[in-house]
């Protein structure tokens, strides 16, 4: 089956670990740059899972979705970096907790 040299489980485990790393970073970091990077890690973890699954089944779909994810990630980063610039300009900080203007 397919052209996968390592067992699928290993790849999926790696993807899961990466995803959790990204998620943890998302939740505990305060700096916007690092949050965007964590997001990137999570996207790539998902993409890795798609590629591995595509290779496992011998289907091209996984790679197509990977391309889509790349495009989405690129768009997201461009918007995200724009927002980062705005935040920095308005609040003179990249700490998201301090940038919050809502009560509670």
């Amino acid at each position: 089956m397919g052209g996968l040299v390592v067992p699928l489980e290993h790849v999926l485990l790696l993807a899961g670990l990466l995803f959790i790393c990204g998620l943890t970073g998302l939740m505990i970091r305060r700096n916007v740059i690092f949050i965007l990077m964590s997001l990137e890690v999570m996207l790539n973890a998902a993409a890795l899972a798609f590629v591995a699954a595509g290779a496992y089944w011998g289907e091209p779909d996984g790679q197509i979705i990977f391309l889509l994810i790349l495009a989405v990630a690129a768009a997201e980063v461009s918007v995200g970096l724009g927002l980062v610039l705005q935040i920095q300009r308005r609040f003179k900080t990249l700490d998201l907790d301090q940038a919050s203007r809502m009560g509670g």
Partner: peptide, 17 residues
Amino acid sequence: LSDQQSGQLRRYAASMV
């Protein structure tokens, strides 16, 4: 419920998780 809308992005993320 109104306490939940705190504006803290990280808490939103945690809630989603």
